[in-house]
Design a protein around this nucleic acid. Structure first.
Length: 801
RNA sequence: GCGAGUAUGGCGGAACUGGCAGACGCACCAGAUUUAGGUUCUGGCGGAGAGAUCCAUGCAGGUUCGAUUCCUGUUACUCGCACCA
């Protein structure tokens, strides 16, 4: 028989599925539902990456299995289409971002369909479509209404190349996430979403969801809750006090200096009474010039300036304490000022050594002449705390004292910062707010949504970091919705994260024009049962969308407290050289080439077979061939088929075992071992030399989620009907067991022989059989058995000497 | 620096709650088919040894009748966070 002609078979079935709406999810069904979600792609001009294929193939297999198990499955796809690369292409080529986006979406759609993914194509969402971003804006206005949107002037991360303000998370390592140029700090008015208000809820919610442990951990670290205390130090020279945050209030007696961030407002406030104000100012300017990256690079070399004219007073001891400014203290965390305990904090220690400041030990156990001691121990030099050796107890006592004196209390801090929510860019959702000279910031009325992104000719941002929309007078000038007077529109747009923060809700009811999705649809489909995607999105994207979801839950717009019941992540596909795939390294594999050469079924099979789904694995062109060979051998089974409608004696237990293995492995994402099990079954079939109708039917059903085209074709040719309308196959646990099992006989843990015994034989029976075995007799000759260990169906171990 | 993960043949990787290490695939070797190449089929394939056996899961210890699996220490690499007070 000829190899199967995938280039004919695959388009045939893709057309069939499309024509018959095979994968359409039904709203208003009374079947049990299953909502599988994969991260929708950003439709870049480069087309799909093999990484996309792996990312989607996991839940693709699960979804196809679920449908055969009788579920109403929602497995949707869409496009996260706002974003800088598209805009940059538009600037470069002069083609409008709308056109660029439409072309890219077309390209992606073609590629996805070519791989045969069972997406419900009637529910495609495009975040840049009016009908979609209308509701993105609606959610934003609801947040505004509920006080979660605020404007502030702060130092922001600014990319001089992209001319855009970036969030902390978009500028990690001091480099722009998009163009990788250095970030500078710039003073700017920005919109924020008050995500910190949800910090605790986001943390608490993790208890109720089924995410992989490392995903939970990353989210916890991102939120970064720390418990400690706020302590107030009076300032000797002024009627003023300095508030600090510390996790170690127990070391309060060891404070020998204080440090403020260079931008701390107190310096400006008392500049007239600070003798060396000029020096402080100079230091601050120097720091502002440094990028965040440089600040962190100079971690070992502490710098700073002492403030001449402000002295703090220790609330416990009344001792006078000098105050410094230094850039190792950040304005953005805690209160922007710290109490420094050099004996028990490594950073404070370095600073104290450099500036010759006294170091007082308050906890025994280390050698503070060499380094800071951060461990536990007995308290000394600490007045009423002396002798306490439990940290918790010391902290409790200090807090009681501070509270009595009214100069401190327990407190909590989060590393997570509020979300800078605007970009000076064209290709994003317009922020639906108006600046009115008399009313202030006014929301665009809901009836006026969507606030359309106006067509412009020139997408270049202004040199001053203004959005391109600012140049468009017809857009900017408007009437205040409140007072009717002349006003100006906000010209910044939303960041790329906005559209992806709620897309899973829209899939439930994508055409709805009166709300983001109907209550019935949300009640039926939510929460997402299983969400799979990349590790790189488990903090930013997932935390943002969980935040939006929790907000929507609080205002009664969605029925569940959490959006995603379960979250897993796939591992990267590395290049054949074992390095991360990148265009510059030239090790990128194009999925199109693989489909051209081997077909979609082989591509799908290979990305799942190459290694454990959650781990990274290098691509190998050679190994792809193994998957092709496997499918060719499956195809050839048609010539080996007998007429029987039952499992044969030769293969019966093999069939049941394989059904069990494949069914279980799909649930635990053990796709590679599921495929291996089918390969093993195939080898067995070839050894037997024939396969019954019933056996082939079962094998095709098991293989269908992985390789849907070839299996559909064979199913039809063999007269079984349409595979997608079949039920998933079941197995009988009793038939998975063999009558006889081979077990190992050991002497002191060393294998001496193997014996065949009846399945489930008890210890006495096994020993009796073992004692008849020549090799066992020989091994035990002249020895006394001291102990014997029997593990049913596994081994028999004699301990003897 | 902190946190997490990974380490098994020539290669990708298997091994359920401690119980036959190397499933499955690739590459390779031999044989069959083929005019030849390719394809396909059959068999072999961690290392040492003629052999019984011995040695092997990054490295060093430990617990156990028995350890890839558990514990302690250590090395290398990957990822995340990074002066978070």
């Amino acid at each position: 028989m000829q190899d199967y002609d995938f280039s004919a078979i695959e388009p045939k079935w893709q057309a069939y599925w499309e024509e018959h709406d095979t994968f359409k999810a039904e709203n208003g069904s009374d079947k049990k539902k299953f909502y599988a979600l994969v991260e929708f792609p950003y439709p870049s001009g480069h087309g799909m990456h093999v990484g996309h294929i792996k990312a989607y193939s996991g839940l693709e297999v699960v979804s196809r299995k679920r449908r055969m198990e009788g579920y109403n499955v929602l497995f949707p796809i869409g496009f996260d289409a706002y974003g800088l690369p598209t805009e940059n292409t538009a600037v470069k080529t002069g083609v409008h971002p709308r056109v660029v986006t439409d072309n890219n979406i077309k390209k992606f759609t073609g590629q996805l369909k070519r791989v045969g993914f069972s997406f419900d194509w009637s529910r495609v969402v495009d975040t840049t479509e009016e009908g979609y971003y209308k509701w993105t804006q609606w959610i934003f206005l609801k947040m505004f209404e509920n006080g979660l949107v605020f404007r502030d002037t702060t130092l922001v991360n600014y990319c001089p190349s992209c001319k855009v303000v970036l969030s902390n998370e978009d500028s990690q390592g001091g480099k722009c996430d998009i163009c990788h140029s250095d970030i500078v700090q710039k003073n700017k008015e920005v919109w924020y979403l008050r995500i910190t208000q949800y910090a605790d809820k986001l943390l608490e919610g993790l208890k109720d969801v089924d995410y992989l442990p490392n995903i939970k951990l990353q989210q916890e670290n991102w939120i970064g809750k720390s418990t400690g205390a706020f302590v107030t130090f009076r300032i000797k020279e002024q009627d003023e006090s300095l508030r600090i945050y510390t996790t170690r209030p127990d070391t309060l007696h060891g404070v020998t200096f204080m440090v403020m961030a260079p931008e701390h407002p107190m310096i400006e406030k008392y500049k007239d009474s600070i003798a060396n104000y000029a020096a402080l100012e100079a230091y601050k300017n120097e720091c502002a010039k440094k990028t965040e990256f440089e600040r962190t690079q100079l971690v070992k070399d502490k710098t700073g300036v002492k403030i001449e004219g402000l002295t703090a007073i220790n609330p416990l001891t009344g001792k006078e304490i000098p105050i410094y400014i230094s850039d190792y203290v950040m304005m953005g965390y805690g209160t922007g000022a710290i109490m420094a305990v050099p004996a028990h904090d490594t950073r404070d220690y370095e600073f104290a050594k450099k500036f010759g400041i006294e170091i007082i030990e308050v906890i025994k156990g280390g050698d503070i002449s060499k380094e800071a001691y951060t461990g536990d121990g007995e308290m000394v030099n600490s007045g009423e705390l002396n002798g306490i050796s439990k940290k918790k107890e010391a902290i409790r006592k200090v807090l009681t004292i501070l509270e009595e004196k009214g100069c401190g209390e327990a407190g909590v801090q989060y590393k997570m910062k509020d979300w800078a929510f605007n970009r000076q860019r064209y290709w994003g959702e317009p922020i639906p707010l108006v600046h009115c000279p008399s009313c202030g910031i006014v929301a665009v009325p809901y009836e006026e949504l969507p606030l359309r992104l106006p067509p412009v000719e020139n997408f270049e941002p202004g040199t001053d970091g203004e959005s391109p929309l600012a140049k468009l007078e017809s857009f900017v000038n408007c009437k205040c919705p409140k007072c009717g007077g002349a006003a100006r529109r906000e010209t910044d747009t939303m960041p790329q994260w906005a559209g992806s923060s709620w897309y899973y809700l829209r899939y439930c009811d994508p055409m709805n024009d009166s709300c983001l999705a109907s209550e019935e649809a949300l009640k039926y489909w939510m929460p997402v049962d299983w969400y799979n995607g990349g590790m790189e999105h488990v903090t930013r994207h997932m935390i943002y969308s969980r935040f939006w979801h929790k907000f929507l839950y609080d205002i009664g717009a969605v029925p569940t407290a959490e959006p995603y019941a379960k979250r897993t992540a796939q591992g990267l596909i590395l290049g054949p050289d074992g390095e991360k795939m990148s265009k510059s390294k030239g090790n990128v594999v194009d999925p199109n080439d693989v489909v051209d050469q081997y077909g979609a079924d082989v591509l799908r099979l290979y990305v799942l077979f190459m290694g454990a789904y959650e781990l990274a694995a290098p691509w190998s062109d050679d190994s792809v061939k193994g998957c092709k060979r496997f499918l060719d051998r499956v195809w050839a089974l048609q010539d080996m088929m007998t007429d029987s409608n039952e499992y044969s004696d030769a293969l019966r237990s093999y069939m049941h075992k394989t059904i069990r293995k494949v069914s279980d492995d799909i649930e635990s994402m053990g796709f590679n071992t599921a495929i291996a099990a089918m390969m093993k079954l195939l080898n067995q079939i070839y050894t037997v030399g024939s396969i019954t109708k019933a056996e082939l039917r079962t094998l095709l059903i098991l293989l269908n989620p992985f390789a849907p085209h070839i299996t559909e074709e064979m199913f039809q040719q063999l007269g079984f009907g349409i595979l997608n309308e079949q039920e998933w196959v079941s197995y009988d646990p009793a038939l998975c067991e063999d009558q006889q099992v081979e077990i190992v006989v050991q002497l002191c843990g060393k294998i001496k022989s193997k014996i065949v015994i009846p399945n489930g034989a008890d210890e006495a029976a096994a020993v009796a059989i073992a004692m008849e075995d020549e090799k066992v007799k020989e091994a035990l000759a002249g020895k006394t058995i001291r102990k014997q260990i029997y593990v049913q169906n596994k081994l028999l171990n004699f301990v003897a000497n």
